[in-house]
Design a binder for these strands. Sequence first.
DNA 1: TCTAAAAATGACATGGTGTCATAAAGGAGG
DNA 2: CCTCCTTTATGACACCATGTCATTTTTAGA
Lengths: 199, 199
Amino acid sequence: MPTKTFFNLREEKRQRIEKALINEFSKSSFEQASITNIIKEANIPRGSFYQYFVDKKDAIKYLIEKFVLSDHERIYQCLVETKGDIFDAAVRVYDYRTSNAILNFDIKLVKNILEELRKNNINIFENKDILKNEKSLMEFIDKDKLNLKSDKDLYYFMRIITAIIRSVTMEVLSERISKEEGKEILEKELEILKNGMEK
Amino acid sequence: MPTKTFFNLREEKRQRIEKALINEFSKSSFEQASITNIIKEANIPRGSFYQYFVDKKDAIKYLIEKFVLSDHERIYQCLVETKGDIFDAAVRVYDYRTSNAILNFDIKLVKNILEELRKNNINIFENKDILKNEKSLMEFIDKDKLNLKSDKDLYYFMRIITAIIRSVTMEVLSERISKEEGKEILEKELEILKNGMEK
DNA sequence: TCTAAAAATGACATGGTGTCATAAAGGAGG
DNA sequence: CCTCCTTTATGACACCATGTCATTTTTAGA
């Protein structure tokens, strides 16, 4: 995480830096993002950057944590709105993640952040590292609607749902398919997941 | 793809370079792999590397194509061995991909290659770009065992299977979970996919 | 006002990629 | 064996990145 120094910065400066981070990590993947660009845009000297962040990873982590917090909240809302129906909630999560306005998170930034989360295998549904005092999102799922044979089944099921949402979302955010195509794919996939595939 | 010059190289030299490529791309992800290391190990001057490959991407592509060819063949075998039963074949594909000996592909290299394939969203089951004169692997699936409502259902279904295999395979290859844990997860997930989750 | 801690700064060491002018090697024909 | 043209080999170089560090500046408390 960023240093104490960074959080002690006066509002205007911190926001200027944050804006530069968002801009650079929107334009380029983590690997290709350039600290040089960030400091140029934020108009701070190189040394300052390293006073605020340990390294590039530390800087993107700052954005990731902000995203995960708001994302978690949004997923929670989706589950509440659908009364815990995970199938309906999945579509809502998809809609929200592929929508243009996610707080101040540019859609390209969301893509790059989801990419990083995937790389580090962070599953937002079960993540407790970042959200220490929050309940796991799984607890808000209505289990009565599901054909669960054992406790662990929910875990396996959520792995599949997460993989499906993530996969189709990434394809949309990478502009390989349209939002509408993505939605159709997701809905069909959920249908299969509901009914099973074995004859 | 590599230049004509590369393929004209005498056997010994080409293999020396190939070995260096495999070694470097095993040790490091694409982004972190260093051309400097490759040319040092292969004992060729910097300029030669760029005579053979357009850039770093071109070099890993060479390995990826080799992998995809052998991977495709292996999946085909899995489908034949299981008489087109995609659920059984899925487990075999998992076993093979997480096994230590994949031709001369180090397990770490497989991980990095799968990572690149995923990044570019290349789905080996439906890929026809690389394997122009091969049939799609989907044609070898026994559709009679599946509860298909329409033609496109197989496509959606394969998307799920692919996502599931890939996800659990990557976790094993990244050593976040053991091979056995991975297998259990995969089998449970396939069970869910067979029976469906809606009560 | 003085002083110690905190923050800011930019030159620099190091190491990467891709280019290019030039040298060397290969091969076909006289 | 020499010549000329094409193909291949070579490494110095331009350029650009990251992360460090000695030094300066600012801040805050006594």
